[in-house]
Amino acid sequence: MKEAHHKADEKTYKFGMVIDLDKCTGCGACMVACMAENNLPFRKDNSDRLRSNLWMRVYKISNGRSFPDLDISFIPRPCQHCEGHGHHAATPCVSVCPATATDYSHETGIVSQVYTRCFGCRYCMAACPYHVRVFNWWDPTWPKGMSKYLNPDVSVRMRGVVEKCSFCYHRYQRAKNKAYAEERRELHEDEYQTACTQACPAGAITFGDLKNPEHKVYKLKKSPYAFRLLEKLGTNPKIYYVSTRDWVRKAGDVYLGKEGKDVTHA
């Protein structure tokens, strides 16, 4: 049954992102867009990182030098939608979930999270090397009247479950629904784009089908400056980062000192 996940003749995608770190200014528009799009609740002081839940988080890293040589970079980090190699259970979170609340779709390459199935054991959070998963310690609340502006396409999560970035999967559903109504199956590149991609004022994020030579991401990910986070773990993530700065690329794999001097990236 597992093999029958998708028909051979059915169109499959491998959605992913290429994020140009040299363009990212760290403005945080992607985080805000993501929260609004995906019904993420917020607190009075959302800068408290232990208590705030974000699906898209922008990290700031620095090369650790002092003034004239100081350089910083921002790393926007959505869910990496790890494919693993070969067997589908190689996605770290999927392989540990005791409830099948999260699974890997071979149709889209997206790692799902079904909140009503999750019972909050948080194994997946421990398994995720990227810290993309967050836990709802409280039921969500919004300032008075704001709950009327929630996105009806995204279900609201309750206390006690884990959630994470879904690549705005509901936008894919909506795009397909429209395509079906027009009696076609194929989606154009611009019909399905994530909220963060569209919100980025610097145009640093590009989203599309990594397998499709006509999509922008296909070429961008082949840049010699492209890398992925913690690539050596073999998680095979679908978020590619691009930076011409050597130290940024190295930080992406968390090199310690001399480690990785002779490692080359594909």
Binding site: H5, K7, T100, D103, S105, T108, S112, V114
Partner: peptide, 13 residues
């Protein structure tokens, strides 16, 4: 009808 064992995200959001 479709011969598929769908991923959760086909019918869930």
């Amino acid at each position: 009808k479709r011969g598929t064992h769908d991923a959760c995200f086909v019918c869930h959001k």
